[in-house]
C-alpha cells in the first residue's frame, strides 16, 4: 500500500504540476464570466402541475393526484390490479409503512435485495421543468429500492415540487447537512434504445414508474 501511495502522490504532483506550469506559462488563467442565461427567477411563479404531469407522461411514467394520504392505498391497489401484480410492496421508510399499513395492501418492511418486485418510496423533491423526481438516500431510503424492482411507486408531496434543478441544489446547500451518499434524479422508468434504436422500457431498473402526488 505504501508503494501505491507514494506512486499516487508522485503522479498527482506530476499531473497538477504540469497543468499549473502550462496555465501560468501560457497565461491562460482567466476570470470566470457570468453565464448569459441563469435560470430566470421563477420562485414567485406557481408550480404548473399540468406541465409537471405532462413531463412525467412524456417520460413514459404514470401519475395520479390524490387529495389526502388516505387515498394512496386505493390508488396503489388500482395500479397493481391493472398490472396484475400480487407481490408484496417493499416499504422501508417506517413512516410511510405506518401510513400504508392496515389498508389491505400486501406490504413488507424487509429489505431483501434478492427479492423486490414492487417498491414504494418517498421523493424528496421534484422538478416541474422535466418531470423529474429527486430521491435522497438515507437508511430509510436505500438507493437500490429505486432500481431493483420491476414496479416503482413514488409518493410525492405537491409542495415539494420546484421549477428547476438549481432550486434542488439550493435546497441542498441550505439544509446545511452533509450531502447524502446518493441523490437520484429520476425521470421515467429504465429504458434502452441500444438495439436497432427501438426504445424498450425496463432495461435493468423499473419497467414502470408510478407517481402519486398528494
Amino acid at each position: 500500500m505504501t508503494d501505491l501511495m507514494y506512486l499516487n502522490s508522485k503522479q498527482r504532483t506530476d499531473i497538477l504540476g504540469d497543468i499549473k506550469l502550462t496555465l501560468d506559462d501560457l497565461g491562460l488563467r482567466k476570470e470566470r464570466k457570468k453565464n448569459n442565461l441563469i435560470d430566470k427567477n421563477t420562485a414567485s411563479k406557481d408550480i404548473n402541475i399540468e406541465k409537471f404531469k405532462k413531463c412525467i407522461i412524456d417520460a413514459s411514467a404514470t401519475i395520479s393526484i390524490v387529495n389526502s394520504p388516505d387515498n394512496i392505498s386505493l390508488e396503489v391497489k388500482t395500479f397493481l390490479h391493472d398490472k396484475n401484480i400480487s407481490s408484496p410492496i417493499a416499504i422501508i421508510d417506517p413512516q410511510l409503512f405506518d401510513e400504508i399499513d392496515g389498508h389491505g395492501l400486501n406490504i413488507t418492511n424487509e429489505y431483501d435485495r434478492n427479492d423486490i418486485t414492487v417498491s414504494m418510496t418517498k421523493a424528496w423533491m421534484a422538478i416541474e421543468e422535466t418531470g423529474s423526481l429527486i430521491m435522497k438516500s438515507c437508511p430509510r431510503n436505500p438507493t437500490s429500492l429505486n432500481f431493483l424492482p420491476d414496479y416503482h411507486i413514488v409518493i410525492l408531496d405537491r409542495n415539494s415540487i420546484v421549477h428547476n434543478m438549481n432550486q434542488v441544489w439550493k435546497e441542498l446547500r441550505e439544509s446545511k447537512k452533509s450531502l447524502p451518499r446518493t441523490i437520484n434524479i429520476i425521470t421515467g422508468p429504465s429504458r434502452t434504445a441500444d438495439i436497432e434504436h427501438t426504445i424498450q422500457l425496463g432495461a435493468h431498473g423499473p419497467r414502470s414508474l408510478h407517481v402519486i402526488v398528494i
Binding site: C55, D58, A59, T130, S132, L179, P180, R181, T182, I183, N184, I185, I186, T187, G188, P189, S190, R191, G205
Partner: peptide
C-alpha cells in the same frame, strides 16, 4: 430533455 437517471454520488 433529460435522461432517465441523473445521479449525484458523494463518498461511500
Amino acid at each position: 430533455q433529460i435522461t432517465s437517471y441523473n445521479t449525484l454520488l458523494t463518498g461511500p
